[in-house]
Amino acid sequence: MSTVLITGATGRVGRHVVTGLLAAGVAVRALVRTPDRANLPADVELVVGDLYDPSAVRQASVGADAAFLLWPSFSADGAAKAAQWVRRQRAGVGSGAPGERRRPAAVSEGGAVVDPRAGHRGGRRTRAAGRAASATYWASLVDTPEPVTTTVTTLTGRPALTFADWSAEHADLFRVPSTQELADRYVAAFRAGRFDAALALTAPDLVRVAPLEGTELVGREAILDNARRLNAHLEYVGVELLGPFVRNDQFAVRFTFDERHLVTGARSTTTKLSLYTVSQGRITHEQVFYHSPPPG
């Protein structure tokens, strides 16, 4: 089985390449900076490293039969020469006089050459060269913009939106919601049983204080772990909400949970009032006041 090294495997293009290669029965190796956040299929071999680190690229390339490097242009001009040059480098023959032996080199996404023995300083030079080339390319678009295609019209049956029209159509996605809007979305998510959507409206470092539980928790994961502990023996049959009641940067919601004990089958209700604080369009703080004792 052949092995293909993928750079940018966690990006939009790279993920499709990974999926396609795995489906074709090809072994996939991915060069990633943070393996714990890569979220790639279990069959993918993860190699820790940065594309700008020559030693990491060299190590990741050992035993690979091919590599996927994102071509930096919409045009294929120059691709043949680049492919020929890469083949010569893999053979250990540099770009000088015919037959002249060179040290092996790795190729970055922008086509820059990185000598595996150059060390960190060489990596910095390559990064700077890549940025300079990118700046030159983007500057050239002022006078010679990329050609406009008809792909959108062909696929959708209507002309593509201008950036101004698209921005107006999607403005709400970029606007920070008011406390009232956020509170309405939060309550609507709970009523629809979309607890994941409700959680998405909270800040990652959400603080939850519940005196009767004896807890002050920071972070979504800690809060979810606490909920799983409290509700380990309960099944929620339903929930009634009253609110939201909004004032300035805070809103309150009363929850009444209809519960069934998984062991005894006994039904019970738990009522609580949660006071939320909002900042920058996210729920950042929750204070929980129980009308009846908390579960567990």
Rank of each mutant, 00 (worst) to 15 (best):
E100K: 07
P98N: 05
S95A: 12
R88P: 00
G63E: 12
G78Q: 10
A66Y: 09
P72Q: 03
S75G: 03
K81R: 13
S95N: 10
A67H: 08
P98I: 05
G96Y: 04
L69R: 02
G96T: 03
G63P: 04
S75N: 09
A82W: 14
G94L: 00
G94D: 00
R87W: 03
R87C: 06
S61K: 05
V86Y: 02
R102V: 04
A80V: 10
S61Y: 04
P98H: 05
G94T: 01
A83M: 12
A67D: 07
A83T: 07
S61N: 08
A66L: 15
R101A: 08
S61W: 02
L69H: 03
L70G: 04
A82Y: 07
G92V: 02
A64L: 05
L70K: 10
F68M: 06
A80K: 15
P72F: 01
G63H: 04
F68N: 09
V93Q: 11
W85V: 00
R101H: 06
G99I: 10
Q89C: 06
P72E: 04
S73K: 10
S73P: 01
A76I: 09
A79L: 13
G63M: 12
D65E: 15
P72R: 05
A91W: 14
G92N: 15
L70N: 05
G78D: 09
E100P: 07
S95E: 03
D77K: 02
F68A: 09
K81Q: 10
S61H: 15
R88T: 00
A66C: 10
A66M: 12
R102W: 08
A67C: 07
K81M: 04
G99D: 04
F68V: 13
G94E: 00
A80P: 04
W85L: 01
G78A: 14
G63I: 15
G92T: 03
A97T: 14
